[in-house]
Design a protein around this nucleic acid. Structure first.
Length: 878
DNA sequence: GAGGTAACTTAGAATGTTTTTT
DNA sequence: AAAAAACATTCTAAGTTACCTC
């Protein structure tokens, strides 16, 4: 029943693909074994290379014997010189140093921030769009602005706060600091009486004032069935000021939805060939695996091992279950079949059943999928507590296959797979009614932390990570942070020139640390790499920029760099790029002996240090901002270039999608190749071959018509590439077969018609005659193949044949193009960049400008998510 | 300053639904 | 009308970042 090739799961295809992708020039093979294809992972605790930034030698001299610049040029740039790359135009402020000596980073950076502000202020109107200084919004939403009376002051405070990079929050905002401390402790306490924090006078007053508003607002919203767009349009009423850490003043919700209890189906797996009866919990776990049978997961040894450890342990603990000690003796196929059948059943549900299921979902959506935030009705995202199951880690995750459960502790008489209410903490405002916990249960904790956006949280067992219930993507909170994200990216756009000059200069810095930082920054900026935090041993071995290791980078003179590593989600990043000469030199320097495989390329650098540095360059700047900035910038740029001014909507959409794809490629967003892809490609290739076949025929026909052309046009004699005799024969056989079938079908159809019309059916002999004609044709073709000569068809002329050939060439080219297009699109995922990286205002403005309906580019959910961005005018620029 | 972790964004797989093709 | 492809949504894993603690 395992219709094998049919059902290859995505993960498997991905792997095959990755394997297939492996370039022949891959230098990483060395040391690779079956377990760690990208080289065995060595994590030397601290293995710094001998070169030390503290010894005062010029790193360039150390870097290599080759062609370093003459000593005079290598000398550290003087302060005056450095100033020059900060901002050529603003030479008025001579002290505008880019980075200064590293030990005095902070004070200089402070100056920098002020500088850049002064600069933008002076420069012009455009800075009105900068995140911190948005002032254009009209205070439409009157109720809210009541809490807002001190806006100008708060704004100033925020401004100041940000220009002092270190710990300023504590200094300038005692309220918020004490608050956050207290609220963290709150979370740890249990029960409902704990009151969070900041009952500062000001706040209390505010709340009192707003209580009234809240009530009326809630009523209003209910009455108008959330048709009231203005009430939801937070972006029309952006206040820049206000304590950013406070996320809401009122938050009411109904808690979370727990997955239903397991209903045993009694389907028996086999052990050692015999069906066995399992206790419900054990049966459920066996079912988890059974459902995954024949997928890449279930065939992965690590997955099997982890699963079996947990499975057999729990089976053992249940006395009623027979002992299970060998994975090999387990046969889960009955369960697999059961779940397949269930799937089928679900697919074949009647209309009524489907209707009922929909209804049920609606009820849950209303109950748990909705909350009230500051009186506004908002959607909750993932309100379902994750059901138990097998952890599906990506790539080579050491824990993949482990059982996700609630508790195996003996406190519970039976093993508890489902997360219990006691493990779940809820966050809501103090005035909100506390949702009832499921019967017989209590909530783990109730907190009132208005600096957090989560509604519920619990701990997961496999990686000991925290899970949250957040608002949906279309909510105001998410929208606001989205807007903030893009405004930061836009702010970077204004600063990028001098920041780039800065790190380019730092590439030659005497201190190794600075060089590494600059080089990393270069890669992050030019290649849109992720920051690359350190990872633990119990995670998949993936890297980002700062965690790149030697084996991930190879160099090729004069300035070519190959990158080959597994990034987030174990997606392979494999690119060959030209890099700046100095970057090339630096990387060679970093890679020098005694470094060896497994060592970090940037052995002095950590993401935290990189980000600290960036923070000094610009408020809110972190490594990930570069990705956002470059993605949006590239998109706008490409969109502009590709959109045909007078094209049809379809042509414009094509341009849009191409620009989108450029971004996806930049960010290396990939997806598994779909099931039928190879087949689809094959079909198109066949189409190309069919064209070539026709072309070949035309060419030969010309020669039959005009044999003299053999000398004049030797290309006519050349065989078509990729057109082999065997293929031709098979193709012709197919053509003939199809023709026969067509004739038969037509014959039968005609006879049916005759019958209806009470006419006599055509005699079978007629059909035979028709088929004979095909046989004659077959002989002709065979003859043509033998002699390599194609007699001209009736009315054929050299001119006509030439025209045909031209047409065919065009078609071949077009089909080939669609082939490349398809091929590339097949592994490129456009969605991720559209959802997370491309400022939606670029799209909105483009639609406006080119009269393209918005719903051609954004689905309903995306329009909802980006509703804050839809009001820009056609000339808006990122 | 290392190490841990809370909280949030970003990510591809899996699943569900609609549209297109056969 | 069925199958396949395309498109949309849901799910939860896997990142980044700030912050806390020692």
């Amino acid at each position: 029943m395992s219709s094998d090739s049919e059902d290859i799961p995505l993960a498997k295809r991905r792997q095959q693909q990755q394997r297939a992708n492996k370039p022949s020039t891959n230098n990483l093979d060395s040391g690779s074994d079956s377990d760690t294809p990208l080289g065995k992972r060595k994590r030397p605790a601290v293995r710094k290379r001998v070169l030390d930034d503290d010894d005062d030698e010029d790193a360039d001299t150390l870097s290599s014997s080759d062609s370093g610049p003459p000593a005079a040029k290598r000398a550290r740039p003087s302060a005056a010189k450095k100033k020059s790359y900060k901002d050529d135009s603003s030479n008025s402020d001579g002290e505008g140093d880019f980075h200064g000596s590293s030990d005095s980073d902070v004070p200089l950076a402070k100056k920098k921030t002020v500088d850049s502000k002064a600069k933008t202020n002076g420069s012009s109107k455009t800075n009105g769009t900068n995140g911190t200084s948005r002032t254009k919004a009209a205070p439409k939403y009157k109720e809210e602005s009541s809490s807002d009376s001190d806006a100008p002051l708060a704004k100033k405070a925020a401004f100041k706060k940000t220009s002092t990079p270190t710990k300023t929050k504590v200094k300038t905002e005692p309220v918020s600091s004490s608050k956050s401390k207290q609220s963290t402790t709150t979370i740890k306490r249990r029960g409902r009486e704990e009151v969070d924090d900041r009952s500062k006078l000001k706040k209390v007053k505010k709340e009192e004032e707003e209580e009234e508003d809240d009530k009326s607002k809630v009523k209003k919203v209910k009455k108008e069935e959330d048709e009231d767009e203005d009430a939801d349009a937070w972006w029309l009423n952006q206040k820049d000021n206000e304590d950013e850490s406070v996320k809401w003043t009122s938050l009411k919700h109904n808690g979370v939805y727990f997955p239903p209890e397991y209903v045993p189906h009694g389907v028996k797996m086999k052990y050692d060939g015999k069906p066995i009866t399992l206790a419900p919990a054990v049966e459920e776990i066996a079912g988890f695996f059974g459902a995954l049978l024949f997928t890449e997961h279930a065939e992965n040894p690590t997955f099997q091992e982890n699963f079996f450890r947990d499975f057999s342990k729990i089976a053992k603990a249940h006395k009623t279950s027979p002992e299970i000690t060998s994975f090999k003796k387990c046969d889960f196929t009955p369960m697999y079949e059961y779940y397949q059948a269930e799937k089928e059943k679900r697919k074949n549900m009647t209309k009524d059943q489907k209707e009922a299921a929909k209804e049920e979902k609606m009820v849950l959506d209303e109950m748990y999928g909705t909350c009230y935030l500051d009186g506004r009705k908002e959607k909750v995202g993932n309100y379902r507590i994750e059901p138990p199951g097998l952890f599906r880690g990506r790539g080579k995750h050491p824990k993949t296959g482990c059982l996700k459960y609630a508790s195996l502790s003996s406190m519970f008489k039976t093993y508890q797979l489902r997360v219990q209410p006691e493990q779940v903490s809820l966050n809501l405002s103090r005035d909100a009614p506390i949702p009832k916990a499921p019967a017989g249960h209590k909530w783990g904790a109730i907190v009132h932390d208005d600096t957090k956006t989560w509604l519920a949280t619990w701990k997961e067992n496999v990686n000991d990570s925290t899970k949250y219930v957040f608002l949906a993507a279309g909510s105001s909170l998410k929208g606001q942070s989205d807007l903030k994200k893009f405004e930061t990216a836009r702010a970077l756009k204004k600063e990028i020139d001098w920041i780039r000059r800065g790190y380019m200069a730092d590439l030659k810095d005497k201190k190794m640390f600075n060089r590494q930082r600059a080089t990393a920054l270069y890669l992050i900026d030019r290649l849109a790499l992720r920051a690359g935090n350190e990872k633990g041993e119990d995670e998949a071995d993936t890297v980002g920029c700062c965690s790149l290791r030697f084996e991930h980078v190879t160099l090729e003179k004069p300035n070519i760099m190959h990158l080959d590593f597994l990034g987030k989600d174990s997606i392979r990043y494999e690119k060959t790029v030209e890099v700046d000469e100095q970057v090339f030199k630096n990387i060679r320097l970093f890679k020098r002996e005694p470094a060896q495989e497994g060592d970090d390329l940037f052995d002095r650098l950590k993401t935290s240090e990189l980000n600290k540095h960036l923070q000094n360059l610009m408020k809110g700047l972190t490594a990930k901002v570069f990705r956002t900035f470059n993605a949006s910038f590239t998109f706008q740029d490409q969109l502009e270039k590709r959109t045909p001014k007078d094209g049809t909507i379809a042509e414009k959409l094509l341009a849009y999608n191409r620009a989108n794809r450029d971004v996806a490629i930049l960010c290396n967003h990939q997806r598994a190749v779909s099931k039928g892809h190879a087949g689809q490609i094959g079909k198109i290739e066949d189409k190309v071959r069919a064209y070539k076949y026709q072309k070949m025929k035309q060419k030969k026909m010309i020669l039959s018509l005009e044999p003299k052309l053999k000398k004049k046009r030797p290309e006519l004699l050349e065989p078509e590439s990729d057109l082999e005799d065997d293929w031709i024969e098979e193709y012709e056989t197919q053509l003939l077969e199809k023709e026969r079938e067509r004739i038969k079908a037509k014959f039968e159809k005609d006879n049916l018609k005759r019958k209806e019309n009470k006419e006599k059916p055509m005699p079978a002999g007629e059909l035979k005659d028709l088929l004979k004609e095909v046989d004659v044709k077959a002989k002709d073709l065979a003859n043509e193949r033998k002699k390599g000569v194609v007699p001209p068809t009736r009315g054929a002329t050299v001119e006509k044949c030439n025209a045909q050939i031209l047409k065919l060439d065009e078609r071949i080219a077009a089909t080939r193009l669609s082939l490349t297009d398809k091929e590339e699109n097949k592994q490129t995922a456009l969605g991720t960049s559209k959802i997370n990286y491309i400022d939606p205002r670029i799209s909105a403005a483009w639609c406006e400008k080119h009269k393209v309906p918005l719903d051609k580019i954004f689905t309903k959910t995306l329009r909802d998510k980006f509703k804050w961005a839809m009001t820009v005018d056609k000339d808006w620029e990122f």
